[in-house]
Write a protein that binds this DNA or RNA. Structure first.
Lengths: 176, 176
DNA sequence: CGATTTGATTATATTATACAACAATTAACA
DNA sequence: TGTTAATTGTTGTATAATATAATCAAATCG
């Protein structure tokens, strides 16, 4: 609670509040608006994370009308490109825990975008397919992503070769 | 439950399981081991995400002995580079919701790595500082990160210019 | 002074992610 | 062949990250 810490605070409050504001300004290393990133500056992980968040944010904004999150899109994309794949294979390909994949797929199935079918030769498995509606949906979502989202990213990169960037990211992803 | 869906399943199981296995193999686009990424292939967001996850994974592994997560490190780094900064400024600089920042800082304070101090001139604010222990801790963690984690990433990138990659990521992060 | 804003906090909800356990099924093998 | 081991989808549960609303104290401003 705030109250807990406030017990010790008023000691500074009653006496030297204004004077402290004057004197300590010289000592306080940062009273201004310039914030240094310190050692974060050169760390790839930090830049990577901030970039990923910004890109996902843009993705979400772009897919607002489709009500589609990145993970959902990735599932549709994999199923669309590899119809009949077993459930575990899809989750594995995306690095998604197969336990977590269940609810993800459940929602896509409820929205009639994907379906679980009996896998030939293995009654444990589900073979995954897009529904006709799902195929259309994926195609339209992808088109919109390319036209809006991806185009915006390429614009931001400017003259940078996007393909080169993808290769660099691929090298990093290969670490895991 | 599994049982729920199994009610409808045996229809395929009892009769045409093996025959379906024969006929559908010709239609099933993917019975093999090669999984296509489909439209994910060229999407920056996807590669970005996979790379970020791999890098964070490596970070966690590297910081195992320090028991430090990326977000925690980033907080220590910002405070270390900008002692006396107000709490809201630190969270803002890192793009962390100030409500979520409370617990994050609480833990660092409990571990005696950072401390909330009275902010001169504003009794609402907390001025954040590293403790002496926190300074040593950050320095050692950073050194270890550079020597192990970051070195590994640079190795993975090969001849690629890391600085160039950082710039590209910066352009993407600037979108938000 | 009163109204509004700001800073830190709590409570709460959602999403992502991880792991353990389980039942049904299949594979391995002695 | 029959018992054991491994796989598949699932549930339950736990943790971390993130978002929002509400609260309270303190500062600011008209």
């Amino acid at each position: 609670m705030r109250t807990t810490r406030n017990v010790t605070k008023p000691k500074t409050a009653s006496s030297g509040a204004e004077s402290a504001a004057g004197t300590e300004r010289e000592f306080a290393t940062n009273g201004g608006n310039d914030i240094s990133l310190g050692c974060l500056e050169g760390l790839l992980g930090y830049s990577l994370r901030r970039a990923q968040l910004a890109v996902f944010q843009d993705f979400l904004h772009c897919m607002k009308d489709f009500d589609l999150r990145p993970a959902q899109f990735s599932v549709l994309a994999i199923i669309g490109a590899n119809p009949g794949l077993k459930q575990s294979r899809v989750s594995e390909a995306l690095g998604i825990n197969r336990a977590n994949f269940v609810a993800l797929l459940d929602e896509l199935e409820q929205r009639k975008l994907a379906r679980r079918a009996a896998a030939p030769g293995d009654r444990r498995s589900n073979a995954l397919y897009l529904t006709p509606k799902g195929e259309v949906f994926l195609k339209e979502a992808y088109q919109h992503l390319i036209a809006q989202h991806e185009r915006r990213l390429e614009e931001a990169l400017g003259s940078t070769n996007k393909q080169l960037l993808l290769e660099q990211l691929g090298k990093l992803a290969a670490l895991s």
